[in-house]
Amino acid sequence: MKGNVKSKRNISLSGLKNIDKKLVNTILNEVVDQGPTVSFKDIAGQEIAKQALQEIVILPALRPELFTGLRAPARGLLLFGPPGNGKTMLAKAVANESNAVFFNISASSLTSKWVNSEAEDKILVMGATNRPQELDDAVLRRFAKRVYVAMPNVDTRRKMLANLLVKHDNPLTSRELDKLSREAAGYSGSDLTALAKDAALGPIR
């Protein structure tokens, strides 16, 4: 997968109004700009989450004239679900599909001054958590929209394994791949990646 990489030096501070420059510099220092771009096509499965994100974020970003008044998009969105299933990848894909800049920022980097500037600067804050039940009510109120990122089903597991194994000339037959996909029930996306990596080391052990 190839994509254009934006340099931190090319991201201007002039478009961010009424925000402390020290805070902006902290955020820019954490911007994710070293990897390739990610699109929804690069993410296996998660069709329900993708559709929700398309309606909640991408369409309003691309056609803002249609989303005013009661249709105005939310400024906070929470991705939640079991770990290792692509919440960060989905967030990066949303930014790419919306022609936006993606910042990967820890919660400790956010301040009320940043959050309170959202409306003027058209910033969407997307949170990601494995434990939404541990967030307090004040935090949850910031995320008016919430999207569940599920564990992969058998079809998604098969697609993920096939995508991983294609790098090694597909050593499994179609029947073996079907069997492995069924037996990997309960595996997350990161579990499947770890499984494939471990198997790839087998011939050289």
Rank of each mutant, 00 (worst) to 15 (best):
L165N: 01
S106L: 10
E134L: 15
A61D: 07
P36F: 02
G86Q: 00
Q133T: 11
S181A: 13
A185D: 07
N170Q: 14
G3I: 04
L53S: 02
A199E: 02
S117Q: 05
K87T: 06
L192M: 10
F80A: 02
K113A: 11
F67A: 03
R63T: 03
G81S: 11
T26Y: 05
V24I: 11
T193S: 10
T111E: 06
L77C: 09
M89Q: 14
S106H: 12
L172R: 09
K21R: 15
V154H: 08
L201H: 14
G45Q: 11
F40C: 07
E47D: 14
I123S: 03
K2C: 01
L78M: 00
K145R: 15
N153G: 05
P73S: 08
G15C: 08
R158G: 00
Q133I: 07
L23V: 13
K22D: 13
E30Y: 12
V38L: 11
I48N: 12
P132D: 06
K113F: 11
L53T: 05
A95K: 02
A162H: 14
L172P: 07
L66F: 10
V154C: 10
I123V: 12
V115M: 15
D169W: 01
V32A: 07
Y148K: 08
I58D: 08
A49Q: 12
L62E: 02
A95M: 05
A95F: 06
L28W: 04
Q54M: 00
E65A: 01
N4S: 13
A162M: 11
K17H: 15
M126R: 01
I56D: 02
A49F: 09
M1K: 03
D155H: 03
N116W: 12
R131C: 10
V57E: 13
A138M: 09
N104E: 04
L28R: 05
Y148I: 07
G189M: 14
A184Y: 04
N99K: 08
S108F: 08
G81C: 09
K41V: 08
L78I: 06
S181I: 00
D178K: 09
V38K: 07
R63W: 00
D191G: 07
F143M: 03
E134F: 15
F40A: 06
I58R: 03
V5G: 04
L66H: 12
G15E: 14
T129K: 00
L23Y: 09
T111I: 05
L140E: 04
D20Q: 13
G189H: 04
L124I: 15
A199I: 08
S106C: 11
I56L: 00
M151S: 14
W114K: 09
T88R: 03
V115G: 09
L90D: 13
A185Y: 02
L165A: 11
S14F: 10
T37S: 13
I11M: 02
R205G: 06
A185W: 04
S190P: 02
N153Q: 13
M89F: 12
M89L: 13
L78G: 01
R158A: 08
A150E: 14
L161H: 06
K41R: 09
K2A: 05
Y187T: 05
V38P: 11
A194Y: 07
V125A: 03
G186W: 15
V139G: 03
S12I: 03
L124Q: 00
V31L: 15
I11P: 04
E134S: 08
R182K: 10
A44E: 10
L165F: 10
